[in-house]
């Protein structure tokens, strides 16, 4: 059986369906990304997995254990990093780490090798209060604390939200290294571009898993051609392109605009000419491969149409 095995899971808060027929399977030593916007149900799913919430119905097995009946055994195997920075702000870096090691009946020394690469970044500040650390350092400390007892399964709820771009990249590299210790990782994030680093992703929307597979598989399932329009005048271009006949979706992605049409009879030249006709002369149009975010937007558009 897979390390994380979830079938037909339901969980409601009153009328709101937080989890709606969720299925998820992560093999041992797998690295699964849970992608979705705020309110998609990521945190609820993680809390059910960590035995903090009881689902309404469905099958769930984590590390071969039932989080409802065998939560005591399960909690020994889990490393959990909640969404909010939840360490003790008034304790120093080292005191936090020592506390979490102590709670799990181990010591910093015993498992130092596991966190060495991460902790070495913050070790120079080990006497500083955790509350006084920068966002990126807080995340590294939180990850160290979640890892110090050598968990078999690591659950990370939006670990990179509110962290700068450099720290985010570093953080994901660290997660890659943690895999070398045979730890199964489930990580959630609202940032689509981070998803490609996982070896499997599930897109969560409105409590439902709308797509799952390897990042490559998900992108390949995307059939339409995507035109990327690079221009300095994004707001005006968006307006012009949205007025184009047949345009299915027109969205800005950083400095680019991604355009998808309902049929395939469009070309780079045709779009360039159209833009020039509408006084946008600097635009560079090209055909690109779909990203996870494109798939997500495509799904949401299909949902809204139905």
């Amino acid at each position: 059986m897979a390390e994380i095995e979830i079938n037909n899971l339901y969980k409601s808060y009153g009328d709101v369906k937080a989890l709606d027929n969720v299925c998820l399977s992560v093999e041992k030593n797998g690295f699964c990304g849970l992608i979705g916007p705020d309110g998609a149900g990521k945190t609820t799913l993680m809390r059910v997995i960590t035995s903090l919430l009881v689902p309404d119905s469905g099958e769930i097995s984590i590390g071969g254990l039932d989080p409802i009946k065998e939560y005591k055994k399960l909690r020994l195997k889990l490393g959990y990093m909640p969404g909010k920075f939840s360490l003790y702000q008034d304790l120093s870096v080292e005191e936090n780490l020592r506390f979490f090691a102590g709670v799990f009946g181990t010591s910093i020394k015993e498992n130092y090798h596991l966190i060495k690469n991460i902790y070495s970044h913050i070790e120079p500040f080990k006497n500083r209060r955790a509350g006084k650390l920068s966002g990126g350092m807080k995340q590294k400390l939180a990850l160290s604390c979640a890892l110090i007892h050598k968990p078999e399964i690591l659950i990370l709820d939006e670990p990179t939200t509110g962290v700068d771009a450099v720290s985010r990249r570093e953080f994901w590299e660290m997660l890659g290294e943690i895999r070398n210790y045979g730890i199964t990782i489930l990580v959630s994030t609202p940032y689509m571009e981070e998803a490609v680093l996982c070896d499997q992703v599930s897109l969560l929307f409105d409590g439902k898993v709308v797509e799952s597979g390897t990042p490559k598989q998900i992108v390949e399932r995307f059939s339409s051609t995507i035109f990327a329009v690079k221009t300095v005048n994004i707001p005006a271009s968006l307006k012009v392109l949205r007025n184009m006949e047949d345009a299915k979706s027109v969205n800005s992605f950083g400095q680019n605009i991604h355009v998808v049409f309902n049929d395939g009879n469009h070309s780079v030249e045709q779009i360039t000419n159209y833009l020039i006709k509408n006084n946008i002369t600097d635009a560079k149009v090209s055909i690109i491969n779909a990203g996870i975010e494109d798939c997500f937007i495509d799904y949401i558009i299909r949902q809204n149409k139905n």
């Binding site: 960590t50 035995s51 909690r75 020994l76 889990l78 360490l87 709670v103 799990f104 009946g105 604390c145």
Partner: peptide
Amino acid sequence: TMEILLVSP
């Protein structure tokens, strides 16, 4: 932090 304490032994 109670969340972490609960998910501990």
